[in-house]
Design a protein around this nucleic acid. Sequence first.
DNA 1: GTTATCGGAGGTTAAAGGTG
DNA 2: ACCTTTAACCTCCGATAACG
Length: 330
Amino acid sequence: MNTFAEYTFDNKVQLLLQQKYNIENISSPSDATANNIVNSNNKNNDQPVTNMSLNDLSKPKRRQVKNACVNCQKACKKCDEGRPCQRCVKYNLTETCQDSVRKERKKGVKRGPYKRGRLVQSLGERVNKKVLKKQDTKVLVSTTTEDDGSMYPHKLSATQMSVLPNNNKCDSTNEYVTPPPPSAICSSQNNLSGFTTSSPYHNNQFSHPDSIVYNNNNIMGEYHHDRNNNNVNMMPSPMSNHIDTMATNGQSPQHCPPVPQEHNLVDMYSFYNSHIRHEQNSLNMYGTPVGSPVISSAHNPDIALNTDFVVDLSWQPPNTEKFYTNFYCQ
DNA sequence: GTTATCGGAGGTTAAAGGTG
DNA sequence: ACCTTTAACCTCCGATAACG
Ligand SMILES: [Zn+2]
Ligand SMILES: [Zn+2]
């Protein structure tokens, strides 16, 4: 049974999630395990958690009733749901077979800080869970991977996805900014330190969307970043003929410092976030500076090997409905 | 041998602690 | 606001005691 049928991802992604969480249906209980425990002040690393099925081999779980009857409780014996319960019938205690009363849990008991640290899930983990819980069924997908420039999810495979941090939203103001540019698997002519003018990301810029909204196997919308629509605050991407920035809306390109080459996405995006976006992005001008990362799996094999999705979580464009989880697929 | 007892292993769950 | 951890509270397995 495929419980992901109504999802917007291709079968490979669904299979990957199923295998990863060792589940068959969505209502399975919490899958939190001791994996990936870090100190609460540590940074989130985006290594995916595997082996959700470590305790597969353990004995079956003990079943117990929610509320034992008074007689069984006193005897420390197994009760059942019936009133009278089987044991009370057997011992002729049917008149007194009633639910035992449960104490209310004490309030105000201080505990101190967590002793074992906190299970910090990578962004990808969290998003996967959302997917499994059928939240955010509207998904924005952007990709640039195929040779033909197609952006459509059915062309993607799970192994080509990776995870990005959630840096889309301004933390301390009401200003919403563009998310960082999507990474892309690029041809060898691209590198980490900048876009080239012949990036396959844009080699079909007028015939292929840079992003699409994909919902229940239907294409809900396409977005081209050379459109000048302020309200459609899609991620910017570099125009091939823009040297300094990828300003939209006919505004002049502006100079900005290049993003240093980094070998991990978190670092790159945190740089982008802290140094670039506040200078470059505003409600009126969305720009991606030269030097914004374009990731090539050839340049950073770890990305291809260790990650599943490229994801930006929800952000809110000005004066529009809330957007949903975005999956950037490498 | 049969039944009663009950320590404590294992299960449940809501308040405390933590994050964005 | 929402999620995870922790521990209070619970059930009942199974070792042992009590019984006859
Ligand atoms: Zn009972
Ligand atoms: Zn009973």
